[in-house]
Design a protein around this nucleic acid. Structure first.
Length: 275
DNA sequence: TACATATGATCAT
DNA sequence: TGATCCTATGTAA
């Protein structure tokens, strides 16, 4: 569940299940974390929130579990507290007298006190979180206009969590296609109208994805495609993982290209290089 | 069984 | 920019 919307949805789901409840047992698979189980058992879960792609589970004794799912971590909530059936390796379990939450596969897990939390190197450097309701278009526009970012390639810049938090590989491709911007373009190549469109899309697409369970395609088109039998993974995206398929705007075959080590999907016709 | 790839991120260069 | 780490999965051999 890798990008901002997926992590924020998982956090909301954990919060709904756990917040206000006593953690009867907290179990870590990693040996270096196991001593924390004693400190966390009996504490009340205050909240579960996401910051960018990181998740924070706060307890009322001042401790917070930090977790990052990287490419492969997966949270599962179980209403009856039973461990879900999975062949993945269980890395963290938070039990209550009711629901429980299970984190599979993730390896980046830490227990932090308030001071460590405020100084955490990843969290401290995060840019504005596009899924934070307090972040608005003016904030994003100001970020896009900072001269120090003008020369960086947009595919990499959009995925830099220090620039804006929450965008990953699928959202970057979807945002650039939505705005008709070539993936190799730089901010300095864009005119004022394009900067405005980009700011708008940087907020709108992650938020729509969060609200809809992952759809960055237009909602009507995604619904129509599914009605015709397409599965969700086929219907949800504008360009991501659609190499060779026709662009929804112009019919040109979507291309799959590696830019700066990342696979990017884009339409060579409606995302033509700027000049 | 081996290899390539992945919705991520860091570090060395 | 490339190498590397982390873990899981799909495809080729």
């Amino acid at each position: 569940m890798p990008e901002g919307p997926e992590i924020h949805r998982a956090a909301a789901s954990l919060h709904a299940a756990l917040a206000g409840r006593i953690a009867t047992r907290v179990a870590f698979a990693h040996a270096h974390l196991q001593a924390w189980s004693t400190r966390l058992a009996g504490a009340r879960v205050e909240s579960v929130t996401a910051r960018g792609k990181a998740m924070l589970t706060r307890f009322d004794n001042g401790l917070t579990i930090y977790s990052h799912n990287q490419l492969y971590g997966r949270w599962e909530v179980s209403e009856n507290g039973e461990r879900p059936d999975s062949r993945r390796s269980l890395r963290l379990a938070i039990h209550t007298d009711g629901p429980a939450a299970f984190l599979f596969s993730a390896s980046d897990i830490a227990v932090l006190d308030a001071r460590e939390l405020s100084q955490h190197p990843y969290l401290a450097r995060l840019g504005p979180d596009l899924l934070d309701a307090r972040v608005d278009e003016a904030t994003v526009l100001a970020r896009l206009r900072e001269p120090r970012h003008a020369r960086r390639g947009l595919v990499a810049l959009l995925q830099d969590q220090r620039f804006l938090a929450g965008i990953g590989n699928y959202l970057a491709a979807e945002i650039l296609h939505h705005c008709r911007i070539h993936p190799a373009a730089r901010l300095r190549d864009l005119d004022e109208a394009a900067i405005q469109r980009l700011a708008d899309a940087c907020l709108a697409l992650p938020r729509q994805s969060f609200a809809t369970g992952g759809i960055t395609n237009t909602l009507s088109r995604a619904a129509a495609l599914q009605h015709r039998g397409a599965d969700f993974e086929q219907a949800r995206f504008l360009v991501y993982r659609r190499a060779g398929l026709p662009c929804y705007r112009c019919g040109t075959a979507i291309e799959k290209t590696r830019f700066v080590g990342k696979t990017t999907y884009w339409c060579p016709a409606c995302q033509a290089a700027g000049d």
